[in-house]
């Protein structure tokens, strides 16, 4: 199960840039060119591990106990997949350097890279869904979503050993660098399990610019 970047969705990137209208032909061309640059710099990598959950909520064989009602609702105390993915440091450097020469290009690349890491995660989840069938995957849920505290980011990263395996580091505030990285927890439900969680369960759901309309399909 290799990490794969297969598509950078332009409409997603446009949404991140706050562009609601259809892009002009020129903008579409610009986006295409920058998307190529971003894809060339990307070194997508991912890891995941499946854990049973113990009575007290700790993931078996780890010292990690995800906190918050949202996670509990999502997993129902059942098995949990922890995943992490990144585009790598090269994209980070590309965006940083482009900021020095053209903010306009950097903005586009940043938005495209966000769409790219989403694609890498989506691909991984597709593979996982196949692997886990007939059980179904809940939506991805990351530290900082809902009441899943960002403070648990470090613990989660340590469990997955993301520093060594993916080159992801954390700032003292718990933010990941490379920035285009994702850690997430995914619950497994029996085929008809409840599908709470994701955007629908989030406190920011009514005003979040990045809300996923399709977040409930369990990709």
């Amino acid at each position: 199960m290799e990490a794969r970047l297969t598509e950078i969705r332009r409409e997603e990137a446009l949404r991140y840039m706050g562009i609601t209208a259809a892009p002009s032909a020129e903008m579409a061309r610009d986006l295409d060119r920058r998307a190529e640059t971003v894809a060339a710099a990307a070194r997508p990598k991912a890891v995941w591990r499946l854990f049973e959950t113990e009575e007290d909520g700790t993931l078996k064989g780890t010292n990690f106990r995800p906190e918050g009602e949202d996670v509990r609702r999502l997993t129902g105390g059942g098995p949990v997949i922890l995943m992490a993915a990144t585009l790598g440091a090269e994209v980070e450097r590309l965006i940083l350097r482009t900021e020095g020469t053209s903010m306009s290009d950097a903005l586009m690349m940043d938005a495209l890279a966000s769409a790219a890491i989403e694609n890498v995660c989506d691909n991984l989840c597709c593979d996982l869904a196949r692997e886990m069938a007939p059980r179904r995957l809940t939506p991805r849920f990351s530290p900082g979503y809902g009441d899943f505290p960002l403070e648990q980011q470090k613990n989660m990263c340590d469990v997955l050993n993301v520093g060594r395996l993916l080159g992801i580091t954390l700032t003292p505030g718990g933010l990941m660098i490379p920035q285009k990285s994702v850690t997430a927890l995914i619950g497994l439900t029996e085929t008809d399990g409840e599908k709470a969680g994701g955007c629908a369960a989030c406190a920011m759901r009514d005003r979040c610019l990045y809300r996923r309309e399709d977040a409930e399909d369990g990709r």
Binding site: G18, I19, M27, S102, M103, S104, L107
Partner: peptide, 11 residues
């Protein structure tokens, strides 16, 4: 126009 064009103009 949108943000990328605004930035390009500024540039």
């Amino acid at each position: 126009i949108f943000l990328p064009q605004l930035l390009r103009a500024a540039q």
